[in-house]
């Protein structure tokens, strides 16, 4: 299955794929940021592959000068009972990623989580709000520079009388 996916993607999206990595039969494909929606649409609609389920969207902070952030898409094909992982690399000064909510509705909350925790902005997302932290919160807690115990005073407590 892995070889078939690589073959198909390489014929259709030769320019969009940055790297392909196979480790213990797990396939990870790094895709160009602006082509992610196109690739996802293809993987979902292709009759043979049919990756009809988006299991999760996660953010990663590598804390390095270039390509600091990463967005990871975990896909699952119910037809083939097969999983792959797509990755997109994001620069710190251009932290926009096209949203895949137009491909899978389930990306909605997962992308909101990645926005809340890492501040990654998903373009064309229908409702990009925080999902865990309170609305007035100003930071993104899973970024490496955020202190473990938080920033004092950033989360107000009720008064104690």
């Amino acid at each position: 299955m892995n070889q078939r996916i690589i073959e198909k993607l390489k014929t259709h999206f030769a320019d969009s794929i940055i790297s392909v990595n196979e480790f213990r039969e797990e396939l990870t494909i790094v895709v160009k940021k602006n082509d992610i929606v196109k690739v996802c649409q293809f993987l979902r609609d292709d009759e043979e592959l049919k990756f009809d389920s988006l299991r999760d969207v996660c953010g990663v902070d590598h804390y390095r000068p270039e390509e600091r952030y990463e967005v990871v898409y975990n896909l699952y094909s119910l037809k083939n009972k097969f999983r792959i992982r797509l990755k997109v690399r994001v620069e710190e000064n251009d932290i926009h990623v096209p949203s895949v909510t137009c491909v899978w509705e389930s990306a909605d909350w997962a992308e909101r989580e990645a926005y809340d925790m890492f501040g990654i902005l998903f373009d064309n997302h229908p409702d990009l709000r925080r999902i865990y932290m309170p609305e007035g919160f100003e930071y993104h807690p899973l970024r490496k520079e955020f202190p473990l115990m938080g920033i004092p005073g950033s989360l107000p407590l009720p008064r104690k009388n």
Binding site: Y132, P147, L148, M149, G150, K160
Partner: peptide, 15 residues
């Protein structure tokens, strides 16, 4: 849960 999101003891806001 020694972390940014958890109140470190509810006696900070109720008796």
């Amino acid at each position: 849960y020694r972390s940014y999101s958890v109140v470190q003891g509810i006696d900070q806001f109720i008796p």
